[in-house]
Nucleic acid binder design. Structure first.
Ligand SMILES: [Mn+2]
Ligand SMILES: [Mn+2]
Ligand SMILES: [Mn+2]
Ligand SMILES: [Mn+2]
Lengths: 225, 225
DNA sequence: AATACAAGTTAGTACGTACTAACATTATTG
DNA sequence: CAATAATGTTAGTACGTACTAACTTGTATT
């Protein structure tokens, strides 16, 4: 099992994570998409991707993008598990705010052993979602990672429960937190201004007017029916 | 304060830690001493040391060794604090054994933010020593790091309380644990065989015969004043 | 003091990672 | 379809880190 495992670098691990995320909602991961998420130049991605291919973690279609191999996907899911368990632990046990925890986890995920992660998960009773509502892959590498509709997909009058939200921008998370929009909360789309205009959303008794950009980053679970 | 701080790499941080430790018990840190503790070639140390000097963290006396600058010492103590707080937290909150915790801390120390460390320390009530009895530097950078005698320094008949022990070798820690030798325990030197022979030590009601190598790695606090 | 050995440094190589600039390919669109 | 724009790759550079081999310096021994 896992014969000459070469011990991946932290960057390689981050590449695999973002490739997984990009690929998950669509086609092969494009060079620029990877570059954007990692805040590096596309040329740098070409180089790293070659190395990942050499290690059998991705398959490259030149000028087309990359896809994870099963091995690459295993590593990616492992990293995502680490990240999300860490976030959960830091929030529930060490008082981190959900808006500040991502960066810390982004670094710790590369240093924490699988054993530490399992201990943290166990200490929390093996949670299934992280503080942002994202599903936590299990130690065996499985996940329930359904594609979810986004708040912006609701029709006027429809309602849904907030399932999860992007965790990468602390300011967005603080904003959503102020509006009372967090995983588990029920929302109803009250109105939508024309031409991709702002949405009016009911959160409990409150009404909030939010932009489309925000409404695209909040994932919901269809409620009625 | 801390103007153009260049963000040290993890390796640089480890170098500073070992330079601190070597220098603390003696002269300027010799190239080979650093190389040995880090398990790298002496030539590699020469290179890194130049870089550390360029960053104002050490002062090099060519062919003689290096010394930490005040800035370098500050970083070193910060790293040692991180390491020891992490060890303490992992042992008391996540069930790590004292013999297995060092390696985990050795990696996490470079990824954990000062904020995380302070949160962990606070969660434990700001402990002053780690699981191996080593003093934990305070957040302000101060420590009580007294030079301690070692079990091997005791005269026959003398006793002392175990203060701390080297944490680097898990096998040694397990061995000491089996003998009941851990921080806080009172020992008495019952006998010493001639020519650097083994020592007979009383631990509670038990007697153990241990080698000089081991007796050199157990630090004690002189008891009978 | 001359010699020998230990300790330390330099030179040259390698690899991972990132960058910019220049070139190549694919997609879009008039 | 041809021109243009967007996307992607290669070449060349840089830096950190480590290695080995060869050379230099300092210390100990005869
Ligand atoms: Mn996150
Ligand atoms: Mn990361
Ligand atoms: Mn340790
Ligand atoms: Mn370390």
């Amino acid at each position: 099992m896992t014969p000459g495992r070469a011990a991946l670098t932290g960057q390689a691990e981050d590449y695999l994570k973002v490739i997984y995320e990009i690929e998950r909602d669509g086609e092969a991961a494009a060079t620029t998409a990877i570059a954007e998420r990692l805040h590096i130049a596309p040329a740098s991605v070409s180089g790293m991707v070659r190395r990942l291919a050499r290690q059998g973690l991705v398959v490259v279609e030149r000028y087309r993008g990359v896809r994870l191999t099963p091995k690459g996907r295993r590593v990616a899911l492992q990293m995502i598990r680490r990240h999300r368990v860490l976030e959960s632990y830091l929030v529930t046990r060490l008082g981190y705010g959900w808006d500040g925890v991502h960066d810390e986890a982004e670094r710790l995920e590369h240093a924490a052993s699988p054993d530490l992660i399992d201990r943290m998960a166990a200490a929390l009773g093996d949670p299934t979602v992280d503080p942002h509502g994202a599903p936590i892959p299990r130690a065996d590498g499985t996940v329930d990672d359904a594609r979810l509709p986004v708040l912006n997909d609701l029709a006027v009058g429809e309602q849904g429960r907030v399932a999860r939200m992007s965790d990468r921008d602390p300011a967005l998370l603080r904003y959503l937190g102020e509006l009372g929009i967090r995983p588990g909360v029920t929302l109803r789309l009250v109105d939508r201004a024309p031409f991709d205009g702002p949405l009016t959303v009911a959160v409990g008794r409150a009404r909030h007017v939010i932009g489309v950009t925000v409404a695209t980053r909040v994932y919901i679970r269809d409620d009625r029916r």
